[in-house]
Write a protein that binds this DNA or RNA. Structure first.
Lengths: 319, 319
DNA sequence: ATTTTCGATAACATAAAGGTTATGAGATGA
DNA sequence: TCATCTCATAACCTTTATGTTATCGAAAAT
């Protein structure tokens, strides 16, 4: 069951014809015949039904096809990873970060990654949840960090839960979502830009480069940061929400002063506690490059730190 | 980069010594030396630092170790799957189902699987969320269906989100959770058995064998069903909750009559909408046997059906 | 019936994989 | 300095993998 044989096997499936498959592989027909026979005898099953007008795959063949393709991809990926690493190229890493809280730990992790592995070039793209999923699906990025409901019914994705944040949404007093009678649904809130509140950023400010905004593209190698929504973090968020239809995410305590001053108001929600569960998402079929795995380790570490700090803050809050 | 060579490579790592590793593999030392050299030249990197007192792995070696182990496991799994299938054994399937709503689609899927593939032997174990995770982690089951927050911080798990249900918890009037001043936390509710309400079961009753309870072990091959909590589904749930500390999961409309009669009451919760996101969980490192993949397809199909029916019910309800 | 098409088989060639024993070369400690 | 330990190298052997060309036999089509 060598890679070579598996490739011959897959070629035969494609052409459904020994002669033509052999030709496409650049070998003679008897060579391919024997090769497939050896594969069959090794596994102890018949892989093809030989018909007079060609061959068709058996159930065993179908199983082998699906699995062997993955196996070959995994092997190629491994080869590629080692070759790149050997060339001194530890790898570029593209990640798509969803809104809060994904972006919070996502950015903090980039800063840590850059500190420890400056040779890894990171491109982070901040986007909406749906866009993150789309970018992962099209392989535009290696990895996404997004709210996991993004994944519903998408069997091509794998996810790893990172954390859970509970927060509320806040808006300006005259916001369109306040005009309607019913409490806004989650789907409706997604129609407006969300901005991360001070709380989640405060949790990681000791890790964040001061220049980092909450939305945009950051390359730690060059230091370039191109904000998608230009907000000075953390103080300008309230001003931004006050003067636009953007929604701020945070806790009641986060905006205690602003609420009593009436500058921003909490959004009524029939689901008042906004539980956000977010995690890594990536394609099931691909094996992740080493740079991505290193980055994931950093994210996990940051996440653990955030969890601990939140627990401390919660304890302080309840006293 | 044949399996054989990779195994030699792993053996050398283990012994950190050419002579001893060669002995453990049953070959001579020069044979192993040459084999490793070939592997190194094939990949174009040095895998071991040769020291006078043995060998130590380089960074490349470490990368290859991690990846090649997975590759070998995948290959072995494939071989095992085909061998089993060749022996007419399409495979036994062990699944752990968490409480509602996991168990709902889990059971319905078993019924469908049994109808289409009667030769697949299924063992379903219904358990609490934590136990599902534990059983998956220890490979006691191939697959789990559970609430995904089970996965937080567990990087050994892969998950695939299946669906999201919103419900509330109900209890008897004198329940301990009502005695405390604060609203019960999610963690506290987990201290009591949960039982599935009529709503989620009603959604799939056309798929369920009439005998199925909501908790227990069911083998569709023999038809044996051993309930863990004996409840006649669906009518006895209210009686059970009324006379125990069990919690029932459902919507307000589910228990409309009982609430007005005062027999059961909704549990106050600072997080009144109980959003349950559940999905498949399995070990990252393992490749799933074919029987499990077939089952997963059935679950996905049932899940899609449930989603559609819920949407219809919701629309009917809002009119 | 005859021809064509397709895969299997036979006979043979060659390169590569994998192994052996004997020996070499460098570091280390008695 | 010498014995000893490490892994590398050399020379050689055997088996297996992979290929070739020529031919065969069965089914389908003309």
């Amino acid at each position: 069951m060598t890679p070579r044989r598996l490739r011959q096997f897959l070629a035969l499936i494609e052409h459904a014809h020994f002669g033509r498959a052999a030709k496409s592989l650049g070998v003679s027909q008897p060579a391919l015949s024997k090769s497939i026979q050896l594969l069959e005898s090794e596994l102890g099953v018949t892989l093809f039904d030989r018909r007079t007008d060609g061959v068709v795959l058996t159930a065993f063949g179908q199983l082998l096809r699906d699995k062997s393709q993955r196996l070959l991809v995994a092997e190629e990926d491994l080869r590629r990873d080692i070759t790149l690493l050997a060339g001194g190229d530890i790898g570029a890493l593209k990640v798509a970060l969803g809104p809060y809280p994904s972006v919070t730990s996502g950015y903090a992790s980039i800063a840590r990654l850059h500190a420890r592995h400056p040779q890894i070039k990171v491109t982070a793209h901040v986007a909406g949840w749906r866009e993150v999923a789309q970018q992962v699906a099209t392989s535009a990025v290696d990895l996404g960090i997004a709210e996991i409901s993004t994944l519903q019914g998408r069997e091509e994705f794998t996810c790893e839960l990172l954390g859970e944040h509970v927060g509320r949404l806040f808006c300006r007093p005259g916001h369109p979502l306040l005009a309607q009678k019913r409490s806004p649904t989650m789907a409706q809130t997604l129609d407006y830009p969300w901005v991360a509140s001070r709380i989640p950023l405060r949790l990681v400010t000791h890790l964040l480069p001061a220049t980092l905004g909450c939305a945009g593209t950051y390359d730690p190698l060059t230091g370039d940061f191109v904000p998608a929504i230009e907000i000075d973090v953390p103080m300008q968020i309230v001003k931004f929400v006050e003067n636009s239809n953007a929604l701020a995410l945070g806790n009641l305590s986060t905006f205690e002063q602003e609420i009593s001053a009436g500058t921003i108001v909490p959004l009524p929600a029939h689901d008042p506690a906004l539980r956000t569960r977010y995690g890594f998402i990536y394609l099931k079929e691909r094996s992740l490059p080493p740079a991505v795995e290193i980055y994931m380790q950093e994210v996990r570490a940051v996440e653990a730190e955030i969890c601990q700090r939140e627990r401390i803050l919660a304890r302080m809050g309840s006293k």
